[in-house]
Simulated scan of single mutants.
Amino acid sequence: MRLFTLRSALLCSALAFGLVACGAQAATETKHPAKSSKTTHTTKPSKAAPAKPVGQKVSMLSGKFVFTLPKDYVKGPMEEIDDKAKAAGVTGALYMNKPARRVVIITETPLPDGQKVTPNDAKTLDNIIAETLVQQQSSYKDFKKLGEKKIVRKGLGLRQLDASGSVDGGNVLSTTITAASGTRTAMVNVISLAKDAKAHTAVVKGVTGSK
């Protein structure tokens, strides 16, 4: 697991910086909208009911950890997972919503030394969260742990770590959800601008299955 955790922490910081930059740009564009010489024509609203958004399914740990992300999240590869990491069995993907205000990073990593654990191994999950906490403390400025939760979802144990911090003066929220089963661990990291706390919580609940 240590093969990839440092890269993951650095990636989180880089993405958080991107979120802050995009948020600032969006605010500027809203404050100073572009002028248009074209005449605006009012269009009557369609009577047809809007189509219900279809989420995209994410499956981890051989189907033991499954959740759905909103449709507007675009999936992309993680360049930080190099050939060495791939050869060691590390997999991952990056999901970003179109306004670029939130990212969801998912990774799966083999347990060290060929370990094999049950779907709710408290010691393994506690160790992962402890390592994650140390990494995030060094990755974010003004880091603050907001809370930690233990969740059991259909027999699979989850750990949730909520934190806040800043990147170049921009405030962000970071929630890490981790699970382990068999010989692999799964980690989901949701990073949002601090002002988007409500939407951040909604995505996290979608991942954990909490109400």
Rank of each mutant, 00 (worst) to 15 (best):
E80A: 14
A9R: 13
A88W: 06
M1Y: 02
K86Q: 10
S36R: 07
V203F: 01
P119N: 02
K35D: 08
K195Q: 11
A93I: 05
P119L: 03
G114N: 15
L94C: 07
Q136I: 07
Y140G: 08
T39F: 12
P77F: 01
D82E: 08
T118W: 09
A179Q: 00
N189Y: 02
D126Q: 10
A14H: 08
R7H: 13
Q135N: 12
T68W: 04
G165Y: 08
K98M: 03
V117E: 05
V66T: 15
G147E: 11
A51R: 07
F17D: 09
K145V: 15
V117C: 07
G165V: 09
I129A: 10
L11F: 13
V134L: 12
G63F: 02
A180I: 00
T42W: 08
V58H: 08
K195T: 13
K64L: 04
I106P: 01
G18Y: 04
A186I: 01
M96P: 00
K149A: 07
D121G: 01
S166Q: 14
K52Y: 04
A34H: 02
A130M: 03
A186M: 01
V207C: 07
L19Y: 05
L158E: 00
G76Q: 12
S8C: 08
S166C: 09
L133A: 14
L133M: 14
K47Y: 06
V117I: 09
G55F: 03
L3A: 12
P33D: 06
A194L: 05
G155S: 11
G170K: 08
A21V: 08
K75R: 11
S164N: 03
K57S: 15
L193C: 05
K86G: 05
G209L: 05
K57L: 15
L10R: 14
E131S: 13
L3T: 05
R102E: 15
G55V: 02
P110H: 07
K205V: 02
V54Q: 15
S37A: 11
V203G: 04
S174Q: 11
A85G: 05
T5G: 05
G147F: 11
G182V: 00
K71W: 11
V54H: 13
S192T: 05
R102V: 13
L156I: 07
I177N: 10
A34K: 09
E131I: 11
L133K: 15
P112L: 04
C12E: 13
A9V: 13
S192L: 04
T124L: 01
P50R: 09
K198Q: 12
S62Y: 04
I191W: 00
L158Y: 00
